[in-house]
Design a binder for these strands. Structure first.
Lengths: 214, 214
DNA sequence: CGCTGGATTGAGTCCGGTCAAGCCTTGTGG
DNA sequence: CCACAAGGCTTGACCGGACTCAATCCAGCG
């Protein structure tokens, strides 16, 4: 059910999902399937409809950095140039809306869409910068705590699902799976979180989690 | 002297500096002076005219991450929201063009400017992501080599100036000044670079430098 | 020429990585 | 429905690269 307040809010700041509704092509991807590869022609944007997507860069010797995780309503493919600068893969079963860049050009002059894209790009930059501080200057336990806090805040519920593997988390945080596992153990011993399964947790003490994330 | 080719190029892809020429207010800052602080209202963009600027984030306990260095022709202040999310400081003597965001709105519809801003934002995102890979997954020597390579490529000349201190470099790379110093020493012993002074170097073997940067 | 602050160098420590073993969950096939 | 296999996760022991602390060097500047 949609309230009047919701309608006003939507009118003031329509989301990308709303603006792009009905546009583009719906595509499905299985767990670990690639949506696009680094080097592929970047002729489309992808709006995540459901599931989780990771973007990654692989170095010659196999080292991997996860640049980001994307959930429903988030946009992938904001890149300069005509080739993708990283790979995007489905973390679990994923549905996306693929929108050709050329199709967007047809909207030129749509102020609401322009504005939403501009905001999304700036938001994306802000996230990359936060991520940089995390990886550049925080300890292993701070990184893991920060990651869990972010995820819990994005989700909202008391039980938080971890769609990604330990390897994904480690490569996102610039750590190893062993270190991630140990830090999770520590946070649990400190009764800050509780791992109800290895892909699901709940926050026991929010203040302590925020403090641990520094 | 401006050739016909230059004019055509400028017409095809005018730079931000060209588009904003004559706009805004020229400001000067002394070494280490702040252009704006984290938390300040973000009502302007700043186009660097001369000198070098660093953007930084400081954590509660004094740890610092340098998010980026900006040189002549580059734009600072692409941020969502109305408050700056980091501090910008002059690395050496700096001149900038301060342009009110509201003044830019007056240009709405200027397709060339819109396009240039959009490109700048995407370029900035790409740089942040490269930086993330550097800090998240590269060794100390790779980080330093990569930094020197980037700087040398941006500069062009055989002699490259380092406007920033070792502390700035360390905080950009997620290392300590001692480690930066040691890695510089190693690169010099390997005859890949030559430090003509501690703020100036030249590349001896480009292939080796690129290789060391992985 | 001496002062001062940044840069270098050295010695020792520690956090996170590596290697290895074992556990637990999930899924599959008898 | 259970046995088993396989892959992901955890745990432990040890190692090493980068950090810390400290002494010294050196360049720029008054």
């Amino acid at each position: 059910m949609t309230s009047l307040a919701d309608i006003r809010l939507a009118a003031a700041q329509p989301t990308l999902a709303q603006l792009l509704e009905g546009q583009g092509v719906r595509l499905s991807f299985a767990k670990d399937e690639a949506i696009f590869f680094e080097g592929d022609g970047a002729d489309s944007f992808y709006l995540v409809v459901s599931g989780a997507v990771r973007t990654t860069r692989i170095l010659g010797d196999g080292r991997r950095q996860v640049l980001g995780f994307y959930f429903a309503g988030e946009l992938i493919g904001l890149e300069p140039g005509k080739a993708h600068r990283f790979t995007a893969e489905a973390v679990d079963a994923v549905e996306v809306l693929a929108i050709r860049r050329s199709a967007l050009k047809a909207f030129a002059g749509d102020a609401a869409l322009d504005r939403a894209l501009w905001e999304a790009a700036q938001q994306e930059l802000a996230r990359a910068q936060e991520h940089l501080v995390l990886v550049g200057r925080m300890t292993a336990s701070e990184r893991v705590a920060h990651f869990l806090k972010d995820l819990a805040e994005r989700t909202g519920g008391p039980q938080v699902q971890l769609p990604m593997s330990r390897q994904d988390m480690a490569d996102y945080l610039g750590l190893t799976i062993e270190t991630v596992s140990r830090m999770l153990g520590q946070l649990q011993s400190a009764e800050i979180i509780r791992l109800t399964s290895c892909r699901r947790f709940s926050v026991q003490r929010w203040d302590a989690l925020r403090h641990a994330a520094a």
